[in-house]
């Protein structure tokens, strides 16, 4: 039986490498820290990386595949995070697996997770083919991750079309790898350009931040240690907004002070 209150959130992007898995890891930790029982389901089992970003790569024994085949119990397959016991990882499968899980399998696993978690975050594979459709089957709502680049926005648009046709909603947007300086100089799509084109509400805005790479090197998401880096704060805010807190999203290209920034804004004013 599925607990009605469990939130099943698909994290997807279409294009690879825009930050889906990083968002899933950071959001999972942040939600767990805020007291929500959270499961992260790695639905990308051909190229799974969520374990690595969470620092759990050496602790995976079973996957959802074994749970479905009843060769192990769900508790055995769930990998609990040591520092943040509210968070558990479940890999959907392993790369040696010959067959894809089917959408029905994903629904079964989701229902099992619903009995013991408040949030189930599903890390979707890149693309819009079978693997993505499987991941989508277990979701009720979605977070689309994109960067302010034409290819990422185009792919996000395709994914949004699919989510709409499957009735997944609400769909919210996280804009990743924002460079305020480039935006202020009009050499990067503006925040409003992306939200207008995709017609989605903005759940979060994450600045390009070198600390993200440092944290993935260590397998310790930025949200884990109360890290005060810009990206860490942004991920924590995404979690708080998901929980219903009203925190305004600040457009960094409009926040910049000083003469150069003011001049930049003057240059952007429409004159006709």
């Amino acid at each position: 039986m599925v607990a009605a209150s469990t939130r099943y959130i698909l994290i997807c992007s279409g294009k690879g490498g825009v930050g889906k898995t990083t968002l899933t890891a950071n959001l999972g930790i942040a939600l767990a820290k805020q007291g929500a029982r959270t499961a992260v389901l790695d639905a990308d089992f051909g190229l799974r990386n969520l374990d690595l970003l969470l620092g759990l790569e050496n602790r995976i024994v079973f996957t959802a595949q074994e749970v479905l085949a009843e060769t192990c119990r769900l508790e055995q397959a769930l990998v609990k995070h040591k520092q943040e016991p509210n968070l558990a990882l479940l890999p959907a499968g392993n790369p040696r697996m010959l067959e894809w899980l089917q959408p029905d399998d994903m629904r079964k696993i989701a229902a099992m997770l619903g009995e013991r978690f408040d949030y189930v975050l599903i890390d979707a594979p890149a693309g819009i083919e079978g693997g993505f459709r499987n991941a989508m089957a277990a979701a009720r709502e979605a977070i689309v991750v994109t960067t302010p680049e034409v290819s990422a926005v185009r792919d996000a648009d395709r994914v949004i079309g699919l989510l709409n046709s499957e009735g997944v909603k609400p769909i919210q947007l996280v804009l990743n790898r924002v460079r305020p300086k480039m935006m202020a100089n009009q050499e990067m799509l503006a925040v409003s350009d992306v939200t207008d084109i995709l017609a989605l509400p903005l759940l979060g805005l994450v600045l390009e931040d070198e600390q993200v790479i440092v944290s993935t090197n260590r397998g310790e998401p930025l949200t884990l240690n109360g890290n005060s880096s810009p990206a860490g704060r942004a991920y924590t805010n995404v979690a708080r907004r998901l929980q219903g807190e009203e925190i305004p999203v600040i457009d960094p290209s409009k926040e910049r002070q000083g003469l150069r920034a003011k001049l930049g804004r003057l240059m952007q004013t429409k004159i006709f």
Partner: peptide, 17 residues
Amino acid sequence: ASANTAKQRLQLVLAHD
């Protein structure tokens, strides 16, 4: 500035997509 070019190209390609 390239942001405007990007926006226009996107709007066109998405209309077709």
